[in-house]
Design a binder for these strands. Structure first.
Lengths: 213, 213, 213, 213
DNA sequence: TATGAATGAGTTTTCATTCAT
DNA sequence: AATGAATGAAAACTCATTCAT
């Protein structure tokens, strides 16, 4: 029997252990791990997982939020260090953006899952909360962007949301790269690789968005 | 017992009846109808459905292909009638584009499903076939676009694919408009409506794509 | 469309074609062929098969009866040619018996099927008829045996039935020789091969049956 | 909700309860009970059954093993108490043997099922394990027999296996006594009853097997 | 007779979640 | 808090047989 987690810190650590277990399983396999798998991987009993998360979906939503937060933080960090002219800065930030996603394919998979599967089984309130959390976090990054690229107030969040939309939409042409290579190949003649395609598309989009008055 | 469909025409009609049944159920409910539901709605026995489609997934893939074909045809029809300057023509075609999707929300839901659920249960070969069919059909529209907007050869398909990507990506912020209105509202403060948001985003994207040399 | 079988001879030939098709499929695969398979293999439509046989089971019962008749005929033929002392004649007839079965493994598989599966789905009257047919045919062979081995009247049929019983019972230790070799191997240490084991066991049994007054 | 079985003893009891439920259903009806039936009869939910057995087939294999073990134990017990001359002892042990089976017809039905149905749906490894368990258990009885009847070492197991084979083979002429009396009657003129027929046949066989050097 | 479209019965197993301990 | 036993909903597909043509 795992030790009782009595202090808040202990509890937090246990929650994290569950998240880590879920993440590594998710990365390793093509479908959502079962709650039993997660429990085992976290060294806990099934029931214990449900003390820390109300549903399996919440685990993955939490994972997604953690992932997004990390992503945006890294993005902000890189943005504030940008040098050069606007075009160069844009190309640079989009490179960082795409590279991060390339390194963290699970993030886009999680995002896709979150729309397709998770939200279906998630109570509406939790769903709203998640969306709100997301938007709120995004605002911060939007601010950084607005400042860096001298975009008018309120446009940053739109730009970001649409950037994500494009990314997500393109991703769905490549979702199974790892899992079913044959399918990935089917797309190749047209769109090279996810990273390259996305970078190009976003360059176009940002160009348009920042040019159009 | 339903009448035997002996001639090829009869068979085609029966196949269509199944598709219609599946579609109307899909429109009416938030998840994929069961094969039993489809059969009943089509006035057939369960087994009969499997004479016309090998798996349930194939039904929905067929529905998606039919929907996309219709969409692209309408789009082409409207494009060839465009008048005016390039900017005006772009705005006009995107209006048609967005309006069609607004009227056929099931199309985007089907598309989302096709990535999330259908492909998972579809044999790889059928999946490839579907992707190929899609690309091939798209090429035709791409050609029309290239001609109308005087875009260099080969760029039309890319433009279209990215346009779809953006649309799909934005859609996933609104997927349940009909089903869970509360969730739709959560987004409202930021992005008005799917139609408006998509139109704007695509105007930006096309502007960028066609401006950037 | 296959030619209409109008004359009794034609009909008989068609019936035979179905049996042949069923047999060769049965030999080639580990489970009972489906009626669709049989129809196709016989070059007929599904419905046509049901003109000649009321159920799929009847096909295999007919096959079994045909097989048994052939088997017993061959056996009788060999018996009447036996020479030598009783022990030698017994050993010889049992050799023929076992060798035939070794060459026609489908016969024992059919027999096993007939008990396990066929009779379950066969109407009682057909079942009785089959049993009666079997017994009747057996009587004839029994007579030959009684004469050849100078066994008292009425004992031949019992001897035969018990001989079959032993064979059938031993067979069930080897039913999948062809299909699942691993399982066959499991038995090897104890009972060599079906043929050898059966021959030995039957020598013992006949010895006992003919010795005991 | 059924009480949680926490201790190993409780768990064992629950497993047994499932076996008992399965057995009484099997005795009462002509085909294998569904897993739902078993669960209900055991006062459990469907899912619970699958905690104790991985597949439905395993339940019946377990039942068969339990039945065989009990059978052989009883048989050994009676053997060691035999008195008298060899012939008398043989007749006596075969009487016990046949009577037991007469009282436990489900055992032969289970055996028949195990060949016909269970093994088909059982993974090969489980199948092998079952065969091994059976042989191993049999060896013990074989030893007792070898000692009692002064049979040379190694012959006991063969004798037993052939005895079973004969029994099984004869049984298949009577499998449905309880279920379809008409069919049982068909055989009557020839072989009296299963018990009588089997006893006689085995007397003959044992006589032969023990006489023949 | 021949066809082949139409029928519909039939069932195991998984797994998220709960709850007794 | 931790455990893990108990729960029970949920659904695609096959295939023997029938019947309209």
């Amino acid at each position: 029997m795992a030790q009782h987690a009595l202090t808040p810190d202990d509890k937090h650590a246990r929650r994290d252990a569950i998240l880590e277990a879920a993440l590594s399983l998710f990365v390793a396999q093509s479908d959502l791990p079962s709650s039993a798998q997660i429990a085992t991987a976290a060294g806990l009993a099934k029931g214990t997982v449900y003390i820390y998360f109300r549903t399996k979906e919440e685990i993955f939503i939490a994972l997604l939020e953690r992932g997004v937060a990390d992503f945006l933080t890294k993005l902000e960090d890189s943005i504030v260090q940008l040098k050069g002219r606007r075009e160069q800065k844009i190309a640079a930030v989009l490179s960082v953006y795409v590279e991060y996603l390339e390194q963290h394919r699970e993030l886009l998979r999680l995002d896709a899952m979150s729309h397709a599967v998770l939200e279906k089984n998630l109570e509406t309130s939790k769903c709203l909360e998640h969306k709100l959390t997301f938007i709120t976090r995004l605002q911060k990054t939007a601010l950084v962007i607005e400042r860096t690229f001298q975009i008018e107030e309120g446009r940053g969040i739109t730009l970001l949301m649409r950037t994500f939309a494009m990314t997500r939409g393109l991703w769905q042409n490549y979702p199974e790269d790892d899992m079913r290579p044959e399918l990935a190949d089917a797309a190749t003649p047209l769109y090279k690789s996810f990273a390259k395609e996305t970078h190009e598309a976003l360059i176009e989009y940002w160009h348009g968005a920042l040019t159009l008055k």
